[in-house]
């Protein structure tokens, strides 16, 4: 399988453990990622918070680059990027005037024809059967709380992925790979997202609630598919524990970490050793 790849800034910054993990995992599954040449930032929260036109233009440039590269499908492992890209893609596909305007602004013709996928969707394309066939070490010790956060399923009319209130797509993989999953309440609650720097208390408070609910429902780890969620729940976990005087000790895995582990890849190859919270 050959697929376009839009890493996004986080995966080339402090969340490069996510890229390491998903590249190793997808390589083992024979999925070839082809990075979009000259991709730029999607604009993230900052663009749509401050300038609506820019928040379409930045993704539009990337979509145009993907189209130029001939990619019908493109993986954007960061849900913020993928939501921004899908929103722009849908707006462009349905509005000729906008296509013309944006093509002018970004200096490349853009049509909005590239389908943007999140990481779960790429695994879905690989298929549960193939994953089960490739299963080397079942994830018996995991009691996982699958955490979707905000933008994997929201806004539902934009991303059109899974059930926005009771998503189950990650659970399906975890269960197939031998892990237990817990039924918990904070699957789609917000961790504070990109407010890590701007408003730290917000992040600590929201993330603390998520970790607490997962632990209360019997989870020994969380599985995420978002670099920002990982930063807030993993890197900030020691700060949360200090602030609230508790010990969570919950390992935060990327979805590709647990799939990779099940495929028998060593933790070091998946970058798991670079997380802040290690196994107890």
């Amino acid at each position: 399988m050959n697929i376009g790849y839009y890493p996004g800034c986080a995966l080339h910054g402090s969340s490069d453990d996510y890229e390491e993990s998903l590249r190793a995992c997808l390589r083992a599954l024979d999925v070839q990622l082809q990075e979009i040449d000259e991709w730029i930032c999607c604009g993230a929260t900052a663009a749509h918070a401050l300038n609506q036109k820019l928040s379409t233009a930045l993704p539009a440039r990337n979509l145009a680059l993907a189209e130029r590269g001939g990619f019908g499908e493109m993986l954007a492992p960061c849900p913020m990027c993928s939501m921004q890209l899908i929103k722009a893609q849908k707006a462009l596909a349905g509005n000729e005037g906008l296509r013309r305007e944006m093509s002018g602004i970004v200096e490349l013709e853009v049509r909005g024809t590239t389908r943007v996928l999140n990481l779960i969707q790429v695994f879905e394309q690989v298929g549960l059967d193939r994953l089960k066939a490739a299963l080397k070490s079942p994830l018996k010790s995991l009691s996982a709380a699958c955490y979707y956060g905000c933008l994997l399923t929201r806004p539902p009319d934009v991303v059109e992925f899974d059930d926005c209130e009771q998503p189950r797509s990650m659970e399906a993989f975890l269960t197939a790979l031998g892990a237990k999953t817990v039924d918990w309440s904070y699957r789609t609650e917000c961790c504070g997202g990109g407010m890590t720097l701007a408003s730290e208390e917000t992040v600590l408070d929201l993330s603390h609630k998520i970790l607490s609910n997962a632990a209360a429902h019997g989870a020994n780890c969380l599985v995420v598919a978002c670099p920002m969620c990982h930063v807030n729940l993993d890197m900030k976990q020691p700060d949360i524990e200090r602030r609230y005087g508790v010990r969570h000790g919950l390992v935060i895995y990327y979805l590709s970490d647990v799939v990779g582990m099940a495929l028998g890849l060593p933790e070091s190859a998946l970058g798991i050793n670079r997380h802040f919270v290690g196994k107890a």
Partner: peptide, 11 residues
């Protein structure tokens, strides 16, 4: 400015 853009309200 406190809004974290989580989209829950619109959803």
């Amino acid at each position: 400015w406190q809004c974290v853009s989580c989209q829950t309200c619109a959803t």
